[in-house]
């Protein structure tokens, strides 16, 4: 297994730390000379994922693999799961509570943005068990 492997832990309900993983990954990709367009895609997709983990799942884990041509990100949690994935993937649909909306989140753009800015996107969720999202962005 080649490439660079990174692991981040996202705490639940701590919005002051949301974005730390994406900021760190962005910095690393810059140093690796990854094209800005690809860095932007990775940053958006991962930031939205971090926010989702903090808001909806009580936190979770992020595993990243950087190879010569791809950044792969796996976000997993043991949160409540998503009952209706197609509804959750719809732009504008949100179950974020009011306190989260008052911070500027909850526009219903999280999962749609994650899919939009990934070259590969897969989400698996089981109610009461948790959710796993796999995303890949080409950096070649």
């Amino acid at each position: 297994m080649g490439g660079i492997h990174l692991h981040y832990i996202v705490p639940g309900d701590d919005f002051t730390r949301a974005g730390e993983a994406s900021a760190d990954l962005k910095s690393r990709l810059k140093k690796l000379g990854v094209p800005p367009t690809a860095i932007r895609k990775v940053s958006i997709a991962l930031y939205e994922g971090e926010i989702n983990l903090a808001i909806h799942a009580g936190g979770g884990d992020i595993d990243v693999e950087i190879t010569d041509d791809t950044v792969r990100m796996c976000l997993s949690d043991q949160g409540p799961g998503i009952a209706d994935l197609s509804l959750a993937m719809s732009e504008g649909y949100s179950t974020a509570p009011d306190e989260v909306r008052s911070l500027g989140f909850g526009a219903g753009m999280g999962l749609p943005n994650m899919k939009k800015y990934s070259d590969e996107f897969d989400i698996q969720s089981t109610v009461g068990v948790g959710t796993t999202v796999n995303m890949a962005v080409s950096i070649a």
């Binding site: 994406s22 962005k26 940053s43 500027g104």
Partner: peptide
């Protein structure tokens, strides 16, 4: 230009350059 002055605005601004 925004009225959201919390730490998350800074995170987004940084990621968006």
């Amino acid at each position: 230009f925004t009225v959201m002055g919390n730490i998350n605005t800074v995170a987004v601004a940084s990621l968006a350059d």
